[in-house]
Design a protein around this nucleic acid. Structure first.
Lengths: 209, 209
DNA sequence: CCTCAAACTGAACAATCCTTCATATCATCT
DNA sequence: AGATGATATGAAGGATTGTTCAGTTTGAGG
């Protein structure tokens, strides 16, 4: 079903004392900062350690190698994002289907544009690693959450719930990403967002069941 | 308007003899093959040269550095893609708006899935370089082409042609990309494609003018 | 056939940077 | 306080690889 986490990417050990947790947080934070500042190619383990206020050796006690570090950062990010989406989906249960779609768009778009630099940096950081497991797990969680949500829509019984739900998710997520890549202006972004909402609404209305 | 090509990424010299052109082609081909086979991180200049059947030095006569090589490969790819889209847009002029959208989806999806490995490899190769100029030029060309196309749609006068056109393009391109990342099965892909067409149709129908 | 510039060669250079490990410090429990 | 395992240090190793350049080959034009 979901691809398992590549064993080579697992973290080396779990922190057992308070300071170790602080260290880990510092490392994560430093990694993101440097990813944002200079991008993946410029990211060196020494720099990360320095900015985190620890030594390189410390880093290597938690991460077997650089890739594992990037992997962990993305894992964290996607986990939080998935939780936000699941939360939204739970809240929106029972609303009209169009409102559900709008809520989904709102949550996702807000999450991605809150810190655009971080979003962009993470989008770009994924190259070096085998991120398939990450993506698939994220997709599985969001699919499940949205399908469950749309199942509760009143006045609508979708002929193929799975299919409609997956289409909406893919279109919404994809549109946001593409908008990012094209560096739209704020004006264009907010306009695009409105059009996307209109599009989802029209689509849902056309799915009479 | 469009960001200019970073000067550091320009190619070093233009070929003036026939064999030089052959060399360039071989280098491009080798680059793509290795990108597909092992991904960007494993791509070394020596390997590219070897597979292209030339020496490293030759490569460096045309490309000032590795990034410029990747840049050139992507530039070529996007140029061809843009031409395909412009062609489709020209052909579809005068058709009903929904058919236009469908033609656009068809062209883009086909182009991207014809050689999925290449598509994926190029998507991933962009990390190291400043690809903004590339993306913006591509976006400008496709926006112009699609806007011109939709302007010729009968029975429809869109209240905001620019806006609708850009929305459609962003949604379509984004959806395809997202579908790629999620490694959908063939079944799911063709289903998704159908849903996307339905969505665009519904959206267009709702844009009465 | 001769000349010259274009094209090509590939060993060597230079620089980067990931990773290790022997050692030191810290926190917790008895 | 002492013992023990968890945590932290950072200089040094080692391997990779992008890039250069002095010299050779090729091809086109006169």
């Amino acid at each position: 079903m979901t691809a398992s986490v590549p064993s080579s990417l697992k973290s080396r050990k779990k922190p057992q004392q308070a300071r170790a947790n602080a260290t880990l947080d510092a490392i994560f934070e430093a990694t993101i900062q440097l990813l944002v500042k200079d991008g993946y190619p410029m990211l060196t383990t020494t720099w990360v350690a320095e900015r985190a206020g620890v030594s390189v050796g410390t880093m290597y006690q938690y991460f077997p190698h650089k890739q594992a570090l990037i992997y962990a950062v993305n894992e964290r990010y996607l986990k939080i994002l998935a939780e936000k989406i699941e939360h939204t989906c739970r809240e929106a249960q029972g609303l009209p289907a169009a409102a559900m779609a709008e809520a989904l768009i709102d949550t996702y778009w807000t999450a991605k544009t809150e810190r655009p630099d971080v979003t962009r940096a993470l989008y770009r950081s994924v190259v070096e690693m085998d991120n398939e497991a990450l993506i698939l797990e994220f997709a599985a969680r969001t699919d499940a959450a949205t399908t469950a949500m749309f199942a509760t829509a009143p006045n609508k019984s979708f002929s193929d719930l799975q299919s409609v739900s997956r289409a909406l998710v893919t279109v919404i997520f994809g549109t946001v990403r593409n908008s990012f890549e094209r560096s739209h202006s704020e004006q264009e972004v907010s306009d695009l967002r409105g059009q996307l909402i209109a599009m989802c609404r029209a689509y849902i209305d056309s799915c009479v069941g």
